[in-house]
Design a protein around this nucleic acid. Structure first.
Lengths: 169, 169
DNA sequence: TTAACTGCTTGCTATTTGCAATCGGTGGAT
DNA sequence: ATCCACCGATTGCAAATAGCAAGCAGTTAA
């Protein structure tokens, strides 16, 4: 509450990588973004119960608050249910897709991933920036009300994942 | 110290993004990698005093230990000084460059960066994957003993940064 | 009326973070 | 031989954060 210096300097440095890490450098923020992008989860309960990692509800509430404050998400009321809230990605949030794609590509190569969860990272890597742009346009449609680009990138990623998940189940 | 279950499952899930975050999802790990890549820092003291973010020595020691354990760095003795240690990037560590490039590109667009620190992210983004590969070959030369590719990507990035830093100083 | 569901909070403990000081050892200069 | 700056860390401590379990007040459909 107190402000000891005239103008508080909240940042460790002006380095782009550092500033990105100040916003995203924890174990959960990008998991939430991931689930919103690839799982199309928009409600608190969906995010809470959907992720296999099992985020705690207070952590999720805190992250959603921070991500909204940081301008990566917006929160609005759900017209169909007075108590529901809908979270949407902003343009800045959508532009995290290449970061997630590279992170997934790296994880797939260097960490012990499971096949059904790695397939999306693989398709995203093989598709390259062109596929990322198509996916980002789909996200702009779903989250920002942009016109439907007509592509089905998310549907293809999801189908590939579910086909593999069914095999191993 | 105790192992309550027969075989501990240390991972929250087998998702590539999650596994990458389990290794890199904190406020310092990628800062250390960044300084080793772009600042060519190889010693504990260089990493400690070089970064503008001011990492604490115990945190740095902990991160170096973890990154070595995770296979992103190696540690060896410095032949010129019995007490010095030299840290090197492994191939897995070097392959984090595209992640850092995307993270920097995002930070430059969406966070309040300072010009002299943003120029490297800009050049890296404009250069694209071809430039990244050249830089990674330089890193393989410096850290893994691969033949000198003869390129000067790091030198160009550093020169651009220092030119801007001199202006604003 | 009731029961399931909504986003989110609370109380609690365990872990992590960050700061400041310091450690035992090294090696160059005097 | 003695000093002293430097080496990679470690320690003690306070503050912040993470994570678990339970619960909140309000909403909706049955």
């Amino acid at each position: 509450m107190t402000s000891p210096s005239p103008i508080a300097e909240p940042h460790r440095s002006g380095c782009p990588i550092n500033l990105a890490l100040e916003t995203l450098g924890d174990r959960w923020s990008l998991i939430v973004i991931r689930d919103m992008m690839f799982g199309n989860r928009r409600h608190f309960r969906e995010l809470l119960q959907g992720s296999t990692e099992g985020i705690a509800s207070n952590i999720l509430a805190d992250r959603l608050k921070r991500l909204v404050a940081a301008g990566l998400l917006t929160r609005r009321d759900d017209p169909t249910h007075r108590q529901k809230a809908i979270y949407s990605l902003t343009e800045a949030g959508i532009q995290l897709l290449p970061v997630l794609a590279q992170l997934g590509a790296w994880g797939r190569r260097h960490r012990p991933t499971t096949p059904d969860l790695a397939i999306r990272a693989q398709l995203l890597e093989e598709g390259g920036p062109a596929l990322w742009e198509a996916f980002m346009d789909e996200l702009r449609h779903r989250h920002l009300g942009a016109p439907d680009p007509g592509t089905r990138v998310l549907a293809r990623l999801t189908a590939a994942h579910e086909a593999l998940a069914a095999k191993t189940a």
